[in-house]
Design a protein around this nucleic acid. Structure first.
Length: 768
DNA sequence: GGACGTTCTGTTTTT
DNA sequence: CAGAACGTCC
């Protein structure tokens, strides 16, 4: 193929070209919506490679895997296959890859598991339950949110405990046990050989901070760093970049402060607003010409965003034509809104000869998709929901993947919890809870308890004990295969051996058939992966397959069909970032929905919501259509809505009302409008939680010791010895059974607690 | 331990 | 309304 490398710079405007050619030193590119940002980024990389920079030395971070893949493809088109060697991906995927290489430096196994949000919540639920904190104050999602924001600010659990301000805040908020949950959560993650999403960035920071030789290696490796969507980076990401770029200072960030929409997950808009302070020699380029949208749309978007206070100065303009006005469609209720949108698409297709794929329907919440889908189906308009529940979040897929995870890392507690009794094998909650307690008492993973189940006296029936041993042997047999079999072989074997296959095939309902189809879809992926040519001697193993799975979304999976299929796309506005369509619908333009009622407490939150609206508006190339409904079902009952305040921010000369009288609802309301109520006020919350059940463990020890350990100093332990346990304090040995290393001791501790400890694991000292 | 029925609770966006 | 959590019975 003829290389375009020699003349591709001619395709850029003057400012774009300057931004591409400024390869040395810190660079900030402020790119307005539709200003050719991706083009600048790809050409910049192509230009670097053309100057002779080794692709291995270029690190390019994007927001989604998909964006990375597309960019790579375009660079390959420009300069050829060398580009395959670029370090390109999301923060999470690139640094997960880096952490696997360096895992042992931070005490993690190279095969560490990545916990997704469900896993993390499951672990937190387990911890709060064990602590007897099952109260609404300690909801898993709230706890995880707080842990996440701490990790994103690089505040460790240990630092948190020692911070007087946090501790008093927690007391005031009646969540005084949060710190303990935070510590326990991290400890359990570590014991399970697992990291959550935020750990991938947190641990990368720690690795680079504490290992100068590693830092130096990567500073030199990543000689040129490029960051897309910089306005959406958080503090943790900022610090990684700062460490990596410190030596060569070749960092180029691209972004648009007006499109920062991820503050809710820690993104800090100050990163882009203060970039020049962080890097004083920064060259700044502003891309202000919009190539995407009509004058009407650019003008309206500018006016909307001008209502925000926090922003960098810039003027987006376009030389495109005036274009059509923005349409506003009002519907009676949510189902009518769907109908009106579908009808409008139908009409546009007829009058403008437009294809389905030229349309996108955007909404604030995933739940809104349903009424729209139903209406599209009725009018026979093909559609695809983009995002939503990920393929990898489906139950049957998660179940199978949990077995895969166990085959790779037996300590993975959440995978174990998921499948230990699925399909049913008589190891129920009671048994599992007992094993959790035994694991906590001995400071080991649950797998270690199971693997040594005969040494623990948990009061299990011989039958259950036997079933546990069978399970352990089954998982061990998977683990033994792992190094010699391909991912596909392993997958088939696991699917059949665990009984999952039989379980699923028993269900003949349409949903059951669909589940099997999903599993087959996964196997197709496994097969492709297993047939991929690799370096000689390297088997495409299951663990290699699993390396990325936790970080993929379903969009990264669906490959060819999206270009072939001509479908209307439905997605949240967040998911639409970076995309563009000729005709864009924004549904649900209602106060309390968009802007969301969760968000009306502070100026900053409202401004983020307004930026979200700005993002939505600027996705459109030719025309924008807004809609809302007067009544919408929520919590199972209809509620009346006011039009969104954002509608008033659109200049009147850009807007036109459209009515679809022929599509008026046939529905007759069974209740008078006065029966429609605003959402009920949330009742004053329950009294502070009292702790029942197990006592809290001492807070100040969270020693993270790698397994296994040598405990031979306990081989001579005798009845009557005084011992000191790392967490339980001093106690007296009451009984000893068996001989070391399979011996166990019953110890009476000072507070009257009797614990049974396995001596090969126990964190005990003999003190008398 | 597990199946099944009843009550409670909750809805923002995602790597 | 829908899914999770809880309670009761075998």
């Amino acid at each position: 193929m003829e290389s375009r490398i020699d003349n591709f710079l001619d395709e850029l405007n003057e400012e774009q070209r300057k931004a591409v050619e400024a390869t040395e030193g810190p660079v900030m590119i402020i790119a307005g919506a539709g200003s050719g940002k991706t083009r600048v980024l790809t050409y910049r990389i192509a230009y670097l490679l053309k100057q002779g920079v080794d692709p291995f030395r270029v690190l390019s971070l994007t927001f989604t895997n998909k964006a990375a893949a597309e960019m790579k493809e375009r660079i390959i088109e420009l300069i050829g296959g060398d580009a395959r060697n670029l370090w390109m991906g999301t923060f999470h995927s690139v640094f997960a890859r880096l952490l696997r290489k360096e895992a042992e430096k931070i005490g993690y196994p190279q095969n560490f598991t990545i916990y997704d949000t469900d896993d993390s919540k499951g672990l937190i639920k387990s911890i709060t339950k064990e602590l007897g904190l099952n109260d609404s104050t300690y909801k898993a999602s709230t706890i995880l949110g707080r842990i996440s924001s701490m990790k994103n600010m690089l505040i460790s659990a240990e630092a948190y405990v020692n911070d007087a301000q946090y501790m008093s805040d927690d007391r005031a908020a009646r969540r005084e046990h949060f710190a303990h949950i935070f510590l326990t959560y991290n400890k359990r993650l570590f014991k399970a050989g697992a990291m959550d999403f935020d750990d991938l960035l947190f641990q990368t920071n720690m690795l680079l901070r504490d290992h100068p030789e590693v830092l130096l290696k990567y500073q030199d490796m990543f000689r040129y760093i490029l960051v897309d969507e910089y306005q959406d980076t958080n503090f943790s990401q900022y610090m990684i970049l700062r460490q990596l770029a410190a030596r060569h200072q070749n960092i180029a960030v691209v972004g648009d402060d007006a499109q920062s929409i991820y503050a809710f997950r820690g993104a800090n808009i100050q990163n882009i607003l203060n970039f020049q302070k962080h890097y004083p020699d920064t060259q700044v380029f502003k891309l202000e010409q919009n190539y995407r949208s009509t004058k009407t749309l650019v003008h309206a978007a500018n006016l909307v965003i001008s209502k925000n206070r926090d922003q960098l100065q810039k003027t987006v303009w376009t030389s495109n034509g005036e274009g059509e006005k923005i349409q506003l469609m009002r519907a009676e209720r949510d189902t009518d809104e769907g109908r009106v949108i579908a009808q409008s698409i139908f009409n546009f297709k007829a009058t403008k000869q437009a294809a389905n794929s030229e349309f996108a329907i955007l909404y604030r919440t995933n739940a809104q998709s349903r009424s729209i889908e139903e209406a599209l189906i009725k009018l026979n308009i093909p559609y695809r929901i983009y995002g939503g529940l990920s393929f990898y979040q489906r139950k049957e897929i998660k179940d199978l993947l949990a077995y895969f995870r166990l085959a790779i890392n037996q300590h993975d507690e959440e995978a174990l919890r998921r499948v230990i009794n699925y399909p049913k094998r008589e190891i129920g909650d009671t048994t599992f809870d007992k094993m959790i307690v035994a694991a906590a008492d001995n400071d080991i993973s649950i797998w270690m308890v199971m693997d040594n189940i005969k040494d623990f006296n948990l009061g299990l029936s011989p039958r259950v004990t036997e079933r546990i041993a069978e399970f352990v042997n089954m998982i061990k047999s998977f683990a033994a295969m792992a190094s010699t079999s391909t991912a596909y072989q392993m997958g088939e074997y696991i699917y059949a051996t665990t009984g999952l296959k039989r379980e699923l095939e028993q269900d003949r309902t349409p949903e059951g058939v669909n589940r099997i189809e999903n599993i087959l879809g996964l196997f197709n992926g496994l097969k492709d992966f297993s047939e991929k040519p690799l370096d000689e001697g390297v088997i495409p193993s299951l663990s290699m397959f699993m390396e990325d799975v936790a970080l993929l979304t379903n969009e990264d999976r669906t490959k060819e069909d999206k270009s072939k299929s001509d479908k209307v796309l439905l997605m949240t506005i967040h998911a639409a970032k970076g995309l563009e369509f000729n005709y864009v619908y924004i549904a649900g333009m209602e106060e309390n929905l968009f802007p969301s009622q969760m968000v009306l407490n502070s100026r900053e939150e409202l401004e983020e919501e307004r930026r979200l609206f700005y993002v939505a508006v600027t996705r459109a190339k030719k025309q924008l259509i807004l809609s809302n409904a007067i009544y919408r079902f929520r919590y199972g009952s209809p509620q009346s809505n006011e039009p969104s305040r954002f509608l008033e921010e659109i200049p009147a000369e850009c807007l036109t009302n459209v009515s679809f009288r022929e599509e008026a609802s046939e529905h007759v309301y069974s209740r008078t409008p006065s029966a429609f109520r605003k959402p009920a006020q949330t009742a004053i919350k329950s009294p502070p939680p009292t702790i029942v059940g197990k006592k809290l463990m001492s807070m100040n020890k969270a020693a993270q010791t790698s397994l296994p350990m040598d405990n031979s100093h306990l081989s001579g332990l005798k009845v009557g010895n005084r011992v000191e346990h790392e967490r339980f304090g001093q106690g007296e040995v009451l009984t000893i059974e068996g001989s070391y290393p399979n011996s166990k001791a019953t110890v009476m501790f000072g507070n009257g607690d009797k614990k049974q400890l396995l001596l090969k694991f126990a964190k005990l000292k003999i003190v008398g």
